[in-house]
Design a binder for these strands. Structure first.
Length: 954
RNA sequence: GGGCGCGUAGCUCAGCGGGAGAGCACCUCGUUGACAUCGAGGGGGUCACAGGUUCGAUCCCUGUCGCGCCCA
């Protein structure tokens, strides 16, 4: 029994429980042992996260694919899990400690702190998983993984060690993006370039051997810089080799103001003559470009900042080397001053001595940390790197060859662009929460990388015994007792970039390296669904790791979906306050409505501007379906076991079978092509504008009428089409369809595991091929071996019902125009009707009268005088409304129609009169135009007749 | 500076070589046998602009203008 009102919240909790209890989402179901797998790995959300619109869209689309393929008989594995999100999670827990006024991370110590993070994860890490369940995500939750669980951690270590052995992971000292707030290195991708209004400072650097005077340009060279405070670390001045202004200065030296260091003026292409003064200061330790210039010219690298972005000058050997006496005083004064305060101090000091020429306002891009929000400092440190350039090559080739395809295809360009210019990937992070790098150091800094501490220590001790740094006895001692080797062998403190573990996700979650059975079965996955913002972060890296370790791409298809924005097109962000919370929408309208909205708006290649009004509209759609099912139930519609829709005899029933087949084809093909919006539009139109608006309405007289073959067939057909609708709609609106499936009939099983309607044109052989890996047909779901005629089509039924629809529509339209209230029943006269039309009119008499508000239907050779005359499929239908209608208005209406017909004829004639058109256009197009002309000419004739009669009546 | 994409009905968006579409909003009418979370009907668009290709362009090409995103 269907409830009177559709209540999403109640249905959703019950259906979720039902699926859970049935283990409906489990991969590897015994009865599908021989079915072809369909595998998708979820983009693992951060454990710290909560569901936002991007997740809602991403997971709705994945769920549509998974439910669709599950219904098509595949063994679906949708692999869920979460990501440990190093920086984000560590920040969350640290903030919590602060709020509770507990000891901070450093006071607490590493071990204790990590315990706290795990504790936090246990308490709060399940939030987003539960939110995904509310959305209806049909993941195999029994296989949920976490990037820091034991198995995945083993995968991380193994990958690190193997890549290190292969020379693809190495340690290097170079400039990194340093976050002075979080005190860690971050990768290029975690840096956001932000436009900042700053200044360009023009500084005078005195030439060596000349007495500096601010008024004498011959005694100095002007350099322009956006970062005056780094001048303390300058080791050269560069000018463009083609810049004639400075040609004679190349090779000479300047004396660095305030500092007194003698540094060369050199020629390098990097210096842009158009920018600033054309001369640029070179600070290799504090600027990426300068670093490269420095390498080319063998310049020293003088770092003048510490980890926190404060000047570090006292005891700074690099800085103090070769400086004149007295410079130590400046070092003392500026030591430990923050970089931004230092900027002011240094500029003021330069100005005092006449070294500041001028200040020019300058807007430029400044790197910021995407987590901390502070200005990133290029900083010279030792870090671990992946040789991304080498690993990118197979990943590039795989997309070039089509082994992996992007949908839509244009994202491949973005992918290539980045991959072909890829920089070494800095993977070490100075954090605690993450996979600690499996590297150990000896007293001389020599590194030992191994999968276990035991192995690394063994190697190290062996080495130092051999080198006679320690005796064999000491070595044995240290091997036995960790306390004894403390201070001698130490483990690398750093952890790996979170994306390092995410890169392994498609195979680490399947059990690699411990158990490869599932890797065998489910790798490579079938499709990756994700947003374009993580193509670089994640997709590219999975490609590299997958190809290297699995020797195969992780997925043949990458579907890239849009970003969800607010209704004005702005990116949703907390600071803007324009975030629409998907959970609120679920509360208000139900998960099904939200899902359908997102699918309907997921057109390829465009961002989604979401308005909640749209969600409301699709909630109404759910209500419509609900009520249609209630209607079927109230009329006792039920599907007999042996019912075959294609064998129906009633025209109306053959018509809905035909329309259902069409909808099935459209929905199936659209999902197959990742055209979610087309699929949604198709099922929407079918349910509302075909099934509800016409089929149920046209069936009413039969259903209310006397018992008999026609009625029993219709009772069955209403139920049959309803069931097909529930199946087609299930991937989009799983909750309401599952509920209706359960309450509308006694079922063998859940809808979620019911077979998808066979697409037209798919032979049973192909269906078998699709769903199986082997020839063992005995284990197939029986439906895949039966059911033919899925491409059922009946043009005759289409023509007849089409006529009824057109007739009713035309009458309704003219009645509304003439302001005839529904209470007024009018007669209808079919003039000069063909035998076929007479038959049809008799067959559909009840329906037409009811829907068009008619008193009766009669026939005549000619339309009566003073009637409204309508053209329906080439014949005249007249409404004798003498006295009711305004003859003047009717004339105006007919004049308008006439003008339209004449315009149509004129346009077609222009085409057909064009020799080139007739010669060049495809035959069927020309034929079509001719038919259009004929129809328009016939229409025109009838309208003229109608006008004549109107004149007579007046 | 390089790349990608977008300018179609009041709004949000489909369509993309042969007669301009949907949803919402708007206007009119309606307690018609499931549904007012509804039904019926209606108005509304030089498809940004300018060239070109073509028998034919909203659709392809070029340019201009406006907007967005990514990378330097």
């Amino acid at each position: 029994m269907i409830e009177k009102n559709y209540q999403p919240a109640d249905i959703e909790t019950r259906m979720a429980r039902l699926w859970e209890e049935a283990g409906a989402f489990k991969a590897g179901r015994p009865e599908r042992r021989d079915a072809r797998p369909f595998t998708v790995v979820i983009p693992p959300p951060n454990v710290t996260g909560s569901l936002h619109m991007g997740h809602a869209l991403n997971n709705t689309l994945q769920d549509i694919l998974c439910r669709f393929e599950r219904m098509r008989g595949r063994d679906v594995l949708w692999q869920p899990g979460t990501d440990h999100a190093g920086i984000a999670t560590q920040m969350v827990v640290e903030r919590q400690l602060m709020e509770r006024q507990e000891p901070g991370r450093r006071e607490m110590g590493r071990t204790k702190f990590l315990e706290r993070v795990w504790q936090w994860k246990a308490e709060s890490g399940g939030v987003i998983v539960n939110q995904l369940k509310r959305l209806g995500a049909s993941c195999d939750w029994s296989r949920e993984r976490f990037t820091m669980d034991e198995g995945l951690s083993r995968a991380v270590v193994k990958v690190f060690v193997e890549l290190h052995r292969a020379g693809l992971i190495y340690k290097d000292k170079r400039l990194v993006n340093w976050d002075p707030k979080l005190l860690t290195a971050i990768s290029d991708l975690e840096v956001q370039q932000v436009e900042v209004r700053g200044n360009l400072w023009y500084l005078r650097y005195p030439l060596e051997g000349k007495a500096f005077h601010p008024d004498d340009p011959a005694t100095f060279i002007v350099v322009a810089t956006t970062r005056p405070e780094t001048m303390l670390g300058d080791t050269a001045v560069a000018v463009n080799p083609d810049d004639e202004r400075y040609a004679d200065l190349v090779g000479k030296y300047v004396i660095l103001p305030l500092v007194g260091r003698k540094i060369p003026i050199l020629a390098d292409e990097y210096s842009d003559p158009e920018k600033g003064s054309g001369a640029v200061k070179i600070t290799p330790a504090h600027d990426f470009n300068d670093f490269e210039v420095g390498r080319r010219h063998n310049l020293p690298q003088i770092s003048v900042l510490d980890q926190e972005g404060c000047l570090a000058l006292v005891d700074n050997e690099d800085y103090l080397r070769d400086l004149p006496e007295g410079s130590a005083q400046l070092a003392e004064e500026l030591h430990n001053v923050d970089r931004f305060a230092a900027r002011k101090l240094i500029v003021a000091r330069l100005e005092d001595f006449g070294f500041l020429e001028r200040i020019e306002p300058n807007t430029h891009m400044v790197p910021h940390g995407d987590r901390s929000g502070v200005v990133i400092e290029p900083y010279l440190t030792d870090q671990w790197y992946v040789d991304a350039h080498t690993m990118a090559q197979p990943a590039i080739a795989a997309v070039r060859s089509g082994a992996t395809n992007f949908v839509p295809k244009n994202w491949e360009k973005t992918y290539f662009e980045w991959m072909e210019n890829i920089q070494p990937w800095c993977i070490s992070r100075q954090l605690w929460w993450g996979h600690q790098i499996p590297a150990w150091y000896g007293p001389d800094g020599k590194v030992f990388v191994a999968e276990t501490e035991e192995e690394a220590v063994g190697n190290a001790l062996g080495y130092y015994v051999e080198q006679e740094v320690i005796t064999p006895d000491q070595g044995a001692e240290m091997a036995r007792d960790p306390d004894r080797r403390e201070g001698f062998i130490t483990r690398d403190e750093d952890v790996l970039d979170t994306w390092f573990s995410s890169a392994l996700w498609p195979f680490s979650t399947l059990g690699w390296p411990d158990d490869e059975a599932d890797v065998e079965r489910y790798y490579p996955t079938d499709v990756l669904v994700t947003g374009f913002d993580i193509i670089f972060f994640w997709v590219a890296r999975m490609m590299m790791m997958g190809l290297h370790f699995m020797k195969d791409v992780p997925f043949p298809t990458v579907y890239i979906h849009a970003l969800v924005r607010d209704e004005k097109g702005a990116k949703m962000s907390k600071s803007k306050g324009n975030v629409i919370d998907p959970l609120h929408l679920i509360d208000d309208y139900g998960a099904d409505a939200l899902r359908f909205t997102l699918a309907a708006m997921a057109a390829q290649g465009r961002d989604i501007k979401l308005a909640s009004q749209r969600v409301e509209g699709y909630r109404n759609f759910a209500t419509k379906l609900w009520n249609a099912c209630r209607f079927a139930e109230m009329n006792g519609c039920a599907l007999p076991a042996d019912f075959d829709a294609t064998q129906a005899t009633q025209t109306l029933n053959r018509w809905i079978a035909h329309e259902t087949a069409r909808a099935t084809r459209e929905v199936t093909e659209a999902i197959e092509a990742y055209r979610f919006n087309d699929a949604a539009a198709s099922i929407y139109r079918f349910v509302w504008n075909v099934y509800c608006d016409w089929y149920l309405e046209l069936a009413k007289p039969v259903l209310m009428g006397e018992e008999g073959a026609a009625k029993s067939e219709t009772l069955a057909m209403v139920a049959w089409a309803r069931d097909e609708i529930l199946k087609l709609l299930h991937p989009f609106m799983p909750f309401i369809t599952e509920e209706l499936w359960a309450v509308t009939a006694k079922r063998d099983g859940l809808l979620v595991l019911t077979e998808w309607p066979r697409k037209a044109g798919l032979s049973s052989d192909e269906a078998v091929m699709m769903a199986t890996t082997g020839p063992n047909e005995g284990l197939l779901p029986p439906v895949l071996l039966a059911l033919d005629n899925a491409d059922f089509s009946d043009p005759a039924a289409e023509a007849e019902i089409g006529w009824v629809v057109d007739l009713v529509t035309a009458i309704r339209s003219v009645r509304a125009e003439m302001n005839i209230t529904p209470a007024t029943l009018t007669p209808l006269v079919l003039a000069g009707a063909s035998a076929e039309t007479r038959d049809r009119a008799q067959r559909w008499n009840d329906v037409i009268r009811r829907m068009a508000r008619l008193a009766d239907i009669s026939f005549a050779d000619r339309p009566p005088e003073g009637a409204v005359q309508l053209l329906v499929r080439g014949e005249v239908a007249a409404l004798p409304l003498k006295g009711v209608i305004d003859l003047g208005a009717e004339k105006t209406r007919l004049d308008k129609e006439l003008a339209k017909a004449e315009a149509d004829i004129k346009r077609v004639d222009a085409k057909l009169g064009n020799e080139k058109f007739v010669a060049n256009a495809p035959e069927e197009i020309v034929e079509e135009e001719k038919e259009k002309r004929e129809a328009a000419v016939a229409r025109k004739a009838k309208i003229i007749e109608a006008l004549e009669r109107l004149k007579n009546a007046a």
